[in-house]
Structure formats: C-alpha cells, structure tokens
Design a protein around this nucleic acid. Structure first.
Length: 599
DNA sequence: AAAATTTCCAACCGCCCTGAG
DNA sequence: TCTCAGGGCGGTTGGAAATTT
C-alpha cells in the first residue's frame, strides 16, 4: 500500500479551505476524517494530511463499504454502477474522495460527472460526485449558519417560490439548495411545534406588495409543489396554518372573485378560518373588501396585551422558533416584522396586509381547500379531512402535543372531533367568540384556555413587537374610523373581518333561514348605527350562534349564503367530512395560475 | 450516568428535463 | 420521432450529535 504525500495533501488543503470548522456539520466531517484516517495518520489532531493513493482507493472503498452507514453494494435502489466492476460506493464521502474529486474538477472543470468515475479511482456515481461538489467542495461555498439576512431572504423567497430550493439558492450566493432545504424543513418543524406561522408577517406583506405590481398570481409553484403534491410541510393540523391561512385568506379573496360559487364553497369551508364574511365577500355579496380593519381594533389590542402573561416563555419560544434575528432586525428597522401572523385571531390584519386586492403567493398554499382547513381548531383538524390518502395514524399530530400548542388543544371550545362540518363550524364560531372573551380574561388566568387563534395570540413575540403592531394597526385603522384602534366606535364595514366577534344574536334575532336570503340582501352601510342592519347580523356565522347541531340548519344557511352551487358541489359530503372535490384547486383556476416571475 | 428522544444534515433516490444521436 | 445518457431538482432517509428524561 503506497501513500501519496504530495498531491493528496494539496487536496486536503483545499478541503480545509472549504470546510471551515464551525458547527456540528464540521464535527461530523472531522469525525469522518478521523475514522477514515486514524490508521494511517493517528496524529495531527484528527486532520488528515495524507490520503491513500489512487491504488488504495479501491481498498479504501472496500473498507468504507464496511463503514458506510448505507452499507449496501451500491446496486440497490437502481443506483448505477460500473458494469462488471466493483459496486459504486455510497454513504459519506471521505476526505480522500473529496480530494480526488476536487482535483478532477480542478483539472477538467465541472460537468461530465460520470467521467469522474471513469477517470479516477473514485467509485462514486456521477450524480454523487456532482452533489458532493455542488454541496461541499465547490469554491465560494458559504459554510456556517445562515445569517439573519439570509434567513429573511429564504423566508421571503419561499413565500414566492415554494419549495424551489435550487432557485432559492440562486439568490443566496454560496448556499446550496440542500442547505436551504434543510434549513427550511427544520424551521418548519420549529414553527409547527411553536404553533406559529411559517411566514413572518413582514414577509407576507412584502411579498404582497411586490405582487401588487403584477397581476400574476404568484402562488402557482407553491401550489404545485407543496399543495398538489401533498407536501407535508403544511399539514392542516399545524396550528399556525391557521394563522397563515387567515392572513392570506382575506387578502386573496378578490382574486377569486371570478371563481364560481361552487369553487368558493370549497374555498369557503376550506378557509372558514378567515370567517364567513370573507366567503360572502368572495361570493360578490360584499364589495367593500378593502374595509377590513374596523371592528377588529379591540380584538387586536386585547391580543397585544394578552401576551403579558407569558413573559417567561419569550426566550424559549424565540429559541424554538429560531427567529431571534427577527427581533434584532426589527429593533432597528421595521422592515422585518416579528411573527405578526402569530396573532392568530387577527390574521392578515395584523400582518399589515389588509388590502384584499393584493395577490397571494406562497402562504396561499396553506389556505388549502378542504383538506387543510380544520385549523380553526387544531384538535379537530383531521377529523374532517377524510381525504383518501389520510390514514388514521395521521390524525394525531405530535406537534399539537407540544407544550406550546397545548393551550389551543385544550381550548374550552374544543371542537367535537367526530361531529363533522357543522360541528366544526359551530365550534369555530364558539371559539372565535370565546376568543374575544378570552382577551379580557386571559390575563387573569394563567390556565386560560384559548381558541386556536389565541394560541398564537399568546406568543411572546408580540410582547416584543407590540409597538410595531400598534403602529401598523393605527395606520390601517385611521382611514376607516378616524380613531385609534382602541376606539370602539369604528364603523364596521360590510367586509369587516371581525371574525372574533361572532354573532351574539339569539336564534330569534338571527335571520331566519327562510328569510335569510332576504336578510342578506341589504347593502351594508359601513358605520350604520342600526344594529338590525349591522353586518354582523347578516354574518353567516350568525346562523351558528346557537347551539344547534342540526346539520340541516347549517346546510340551509350555507346554501342561502353561497347559493345552490354549494349544494351541488358539497352536498354529498356534508356530515361526512370536508371533501369538496378530489382536487380542490381544480375549482380555483385563478389560484393555480403560475407566476412567471421566478421561472 | 444512562437511556430515550430530538435535532440536524449529508447523502441518496427517483423523477423529470434536455440535448445528442 | 424515438431512445438514451447526462444532469438537475425535490423529497426522503439514515445516523451522529445534542438534548431531555
């Protein structure tokens, strides 16, 4: 066995340049170096300065086969291997292999990766070589944790592109798609556990602003890659889906104006988290969709103040979220907002994205029809999702069991898990109503239960960013009420998103089902003092203010609100779960338009 | 201190696209 | 037009490290 002490050393110098010890990743690499070279160079602090010669590579290969975590012959799984030759190696790369690859690329350039195997003693397939080079060996790779700016950019890019990691990497010099992907997936899990939105409010807002300059519906990719493919990143039982969905639901409603009522129905139920008024709005029954804030003020203020009870959780939660940078950035600039979306109850409004004329992109994927729409109650999520692919074992979301999510799980308005759509909607109405009440009581009771929305309301994030939101809210509220958000006299527009203040009407006060349609007809007059014409009285959820569990009541109410189309599309599934169609998006052509911006 | 669990990430797998023959 | 190889991409896996119990 001969050992080269010249050129291989050069390779390893290159390796050291590109793999700056920094994190656990490097610990791993370091460990691997030790493992693979301890026999030949036990000294040198684990750093390998000599590698085996090419002739040793085959032996090394064989040895590594033994050590490889994969440990197979390389022929399984369809992996290519040289015909008649030794099987291609799999598993972690050794420093020697890296050196060989680096040397080869240095001499021949990138590309033609299969030639690497042919021209060197490397028993790696071309794809493996390419991947190794692209992700670890190529120059200018930026190793180490993502900077706050990079994280912000990733979030923003993801909101636009979805899981297009390679494209995202193109915007992050020195970063690989794999790195971004891993980061994102980790982040998703963090958010899920914490019950917080995936997209910070500012990102949604910024994206929306960008989108406003274009008529493109910029969510296509997300939909295609995540939604339509069943990407699990946005599991409906994800508490914070609720918030994201809410934050977007209202906003993109006008985008769907051309969508048929039937499709709206799917949307309606799917996005019930955004409140029925929004669905009504979508259906063209309400036209003043831009007047969204009034009526929400006290809710928001209550939410903002309610976080005071969780001072001790702030740091922990921040850590869990991995979004400390948001605060840092926000402290100096409002460009980066905290988890505004976490203001569950307030949704888009607290994101500062009140305009319903804006388009929606990434987050929309979370506003999925039917299957992702039981988030109004994290507990109930999958109870109603009877998608064929849904397995019973999937009904339990471990993340919901996390301490952070527990408050919502134990909501006093816990949805009856096995009751179906009507019950769910009733639950939501109750939950929303109770959510409002909780804003008044949340401080007084550490054991306060909360609605799913409140789950995020209690996010300590808000405590740190309350000022930010208050400014934003006042900014948005001013045009409507002329008062501060704390004012209680702000007129409630027809499209008021005050989903928290669900109907207080008694059944007698509520529009009868028989005359409900008529009741829905009068044009709303924002600011009208007459309670009889108050939008709230016409709100669909008013129908559910009672304790009825009669699904027919619900069906009639929905039919009245949305027309017969809903019956056409959804009747078959009433009482059996929310499955409006095999492909919810098939009913939403607008939502499926692909943006060309990032293509 | 040990076991169990979670986190993190490098690498693999399979699908798809593209271009050459 | 068809076939095939090369390459890119996104999803998933497996295992070590870190953390928790």
């Amino acid at each position: 066995m001969s050992i080269s002490e010249t050129e291989p050393t050069y390779h390893l110098e290159i390796l050291r340049n590109h793999q700056t010890p920094r994190s656990r990743r490097d610990v791993f690499s370091h460990r691997m170096r030790i493992v693979n070279n301890s026999a030949i160079n036990p000294g040198h602090d684990g750093e390998m300065y000599r590698v085996k010669s090419e002739s040793d590579c085959e032996m090394m290969h064989q040895e590594d086969q033994m050590d490889s975590p994969v440990g197979d012959d390389g022929s399984s799984g369809g992996s290519p291997h040289r015909g008649g030759g030794p099987p291609l190696k799999k598993g972690p790369w050794t420093s020697a292999e890296d050196a060989i690859l680096v040397d080869y690329v240095k001499k021949h350039g990138e590309g033609n990766w299969n030639a690497v195997q042919k021209n060197t003693g490397l028993f790696r397939c071309g794809k493996s070589c390419r991947l190794r080079w692209a992700n670890h060996l190529r120059p200018n790779l930026k190793k180490g944790a993502f900077t706050p700016e990079e994280e912000r950019l990733i979030i923003q890019l993801h909101s636009k592109m979805g899981n297009k990691w390679a494209r995202m990497a193109a915007h992050l010099p020195g970063r690989t798609d794999n790195e971004i992907k891993n980061y994102w997936n980790t982040r998703i899990k963090r958010c899920q556990r914490a019950g917080l939105p995936i997209y910070p409010a500012s990102v949604c807002n910024q994206s929306s602003n960008e989108d406003q300059g274009s008529s493109d519906f910029n969510c296509g990719e997300n939909l295609s890659s995540d939604l339509l493919n069943g990407n699990g990143l946005y599991l409906p039982d994800f508490t914070c889906d609720n918030f994201i969905a809410n934050s977007e639901a209202l906003s993109y409603a006008p985008q769907l104006s051309a969508v048929s009522i039937s499709s709206l129905l799917g949307q309606s139920f799917a996005s019930k988290n955004c409140g029925f008024m929004d669905q009504v709005n979508q259906a063209g029954m309400l036209k003043q969709s831009d007047h969204l804030l009034p009526g929400l003020s006290d809710t928001i203020n209550g939410a903002l103040s309610s976080v005071d009870q969780f001072p001790n959780d702030s740091e922990k939660l921040k850590k869990a979220l991995g979004f400390d940078y948001l605060h840092e950035a926000n402290s100096s600039s409002k460009t980066i907002a905290p988890f505004g979306g976490a203001l569950t109850g307030s949704h888009a409004f607290l994101n500062g994205t009140f305009s319903t004329s804006r388009t929606i992109n990434g987050p929309l994927k979370m506003e999925l029809p039917s299957l992702q729409d039981t988030e109004s109650d994290p507990n109930s999520w999958l109870k109603y999702t009877v998608a064929p692919a849904m397995q019973p074992t999937e009904l339990v979301d471990p993340y919901l069991q996390s301490p952070t999510a527990t408050p919502s799980v134990k909501s006093e308005c816990a949805s009856p898990r096995n009751s179906g759509l009507l019950e769910e909607l009733l639950h939501e109405a109750q939950g929303l109503r109770s959510g409002r009440n909780q804003q008044l009581s949340v401080r007084s009771s550490s054991s306060s239960v909360s609605t799913p929305c409140d789950t995020t309301v209690i996010s300590p994030e808000f405590d740190l960013c309350q000022e930010y939101w208050e400014e934003r809210l006042n900014e948005y509220a001013a045009p409507f009420s002329g008062n501060s958000l704390t004012g209680s006299t702000a007129p409630v527009s027809a499209a008021s998103p005050d989903v928290f203040q669900l109907s207080k009407l008694s059944p007698a006060q509520s529009p009868s089902l028989g005359s409900g349609e008529q009741a829905m007809q009068p044009a709303y007059e924002p600011g009208a003092g007459d309670t009889s014409s108050h939008p709230e009285n016409f709100r669909p959820d008013a129908f559910f203010s009672g304790n009825t569990t009669d699904s027919s009541v619900f069906n009639n109410a929905i039919a009245m609100l949305l027309g017969n189309d809903m019956n056409t599309d959804c009747k078959p599934v009433f009482g059996h779960g929310i499955v409006f169609d095999t492909s919810p998006w098939s009913n939403m052509p607008h939502a499926c338009q692909m943006s060309e911006e990032f293509k």
